[in-house]
Amino acid sequence: MIQMYQVSKRYPNGALALQNINLYIEKGEFVFLVGPSGAGKSTFMKLIIRRELPTSGQIIVGGRNVTRLRPWEIPRLRRSVGIVFQDFLLLPNKTAYENVAFALEVTEASPREIKRRVPAALELVGLKHKLSALPHQLSGGEQQRVSLARSIVNNPLILLADEPTGNLDPDTSWEIMDLLCEINKRGTTVIMTTHNSNIVDRMKKRVIALENGIIVRDDQRGAYCR
């Protein structure tokens, strides 16, 4: 599903975020991406949806070379990849419902479909009662869950979750993990970054560890969501 060959990323200011990354992630896999702050995890995510271009190397997502996409081909890539951004990226003047609906509207989905799917997605993340709240009226964890609902609302092939449990209490974190597992079971490839070793240890999934932009460990535990 995702392949990287010799991928390096150096930001214009000189920061070397990723170095010589080679990896292969299969369809339907569940992968944890771990490592200290500044290791390059978010950069890794940004490369997959072409929010950034690698300085060198090739990235193949769903059979398409992301580094060679023409500008007008990018939207299709992004629609097939759901993302929970580390900083949520919610629209401040839209309600929770509208923020989620937004991801469907850009795909020109029918109003009927939007009305069916948006509440369902928000219910999945446990925010059914906060449909009409604006982001600033929500707690950090709730905003995070709105962001998660938005990322899964159009059944993406790949789900990138950058610290989806970063602001959540343990109970809610486990609810989110169950949800991600559920999504993974339906065939979606999930890549999740986290600093929570507790979760990583208990889930028993493939773990890719980054340090200073280099893969220092890639543990294939072979376990899938039960």
């Binding site: 992004r78 629609r79 850009v106």
Partner: peptide, 16 residues
């Protein structure tokens, strides 16, 4: 501009 960026990231076309 923030709104535009988010729209781009969830896969909106430029014309949209």
């Amino acid at each position: 501009r923030k709104e535009i960026e988010i729209m781009k990231l969830v896969g909106a076309t430029n014309w949209f």
